[in-house]
């Protein structure tokens, strides 16, 4: 039904109809096999426009699960790369739960699973090496590198008050002059500070948060929600 109403204008070709966004389509027809082509187009749109919708992608994987013969390996692999980029969210495993095991044994899924494993266990050196070997899989999705760097910085700032420059360099896979440039940008925009460590190069002071600076943790007051109190109203009365 949606295909009939396809808009001739090139920019809007991927949107399923003029009146519904794909998100709405999913909300109204979560179990409708007819929206499968729309969802596939939407995956490509997410890739090109650097947007992301877990709900729509899960919906598509669900339809593939119900009708395995309609599955497109290329679309699934794009969904999985997008899910990797959503780290630290567990989206990658959410997707894997819906993909049959025999499919997961094939390429490029095997590689993607290895990549996910390196990210989950924060072995960034291995991750970047492996990613470099598989450019064809990950580089078709714009913004991949930046998304993983953002995840690395997220984990680093949970862990470190001050991180040695080489550790940072390894995690985000940036070195030398480009790293200087990157740091300069972070210093002006994100409140990072550079320090000299005793004798051994640079230390990067990451912004304070309650996880790398436990003093900041708000002591949760011992408050009781009203509905708990209502339980003893009859007794009090």
């Amino acid at each position: 039904m949606a295909r009939e109403r396809e808009n001739p204008k090139p920019q809007q070709q991927q949107s399923p109809s003029s009146s519904y966004t794909v998100e709405e389509l999913v909300a109204v027809n979560p179990y409708n096999p007819d929206i499968l082509p729309d969802l596939e187009n939407y995956v490509n749109e997410q890739v090109s426009s650097q947007t992301y919708s877990l709900n729509a992608n899960l919906c598509l994987l669900r339809l593939y699960q119900f009708e395995p013969e309609r599955m497109s390996t290329q679309i699934v692999s794009r969904i999985l790369v997008k899910a990797l980029m959503a780290m630290p969210a567990p989206d990658f495993s959410l997707c894997l739960f819906l993909i049959p095991e025999r499919v997961q044994m094939e390429e490029p899924f095997k590689t993607l699973i290895v990549l996910s494993h390196y990210l989950e266990t924060t072995r960034f050196r291995q991750f970047w090496d492996e990613a470099a070997k598989n450019r064809s899989v990950v580089e078709v999705v714009p913004g991949f590198e930046q998304a993983i760097q953002a995840y690395a910085i997220h984990v680093l700032s949970l862990t470190y008050q001050k991180v040695p420059r080489p550790v940072l360099a390894e995690a985000i896979n940036v070195e030398g002059l480009s790293l200087d440039k990157f740091l300069e940008h972070q210093v002006t925009n994100c409140g990072w500070v550079l320090e000299k460590s005793q004798g051994r190069g640079q230390l990067v002071v990451l912004p304070r948060n309650e996880f790398n600076q436990p003093e900041l943790k708000k002591s949760s007051a011992d408050s009781i929600p009203l509905e708990h109190i209502t339980r003893i109203f009859p007794i009090l009365g």
């Binding site: 862990t159 470190y160 008050q161 001050k162 991180v163 040695p164 460590s197 230390l203 996880f211 790398n212 600076q213 436990p214 002591s219 949760s220 011992d222 408050s223 009781i224 708990h228």
Partner: peptide, 22 residues
């Protein structure tokens, strides 16, 4: 919990906040 400062790990044992109210 813990945090790392350069090469040193500082450990923070999270205090159990007892729910006196409950």
């Amino acid at each position: 919990d813990f945090y790392i400062n350069d090469d040193t790990i500082h450990v923070v044992e999270s205090k159990t906040t007892k729910r006196y109210g409950d």
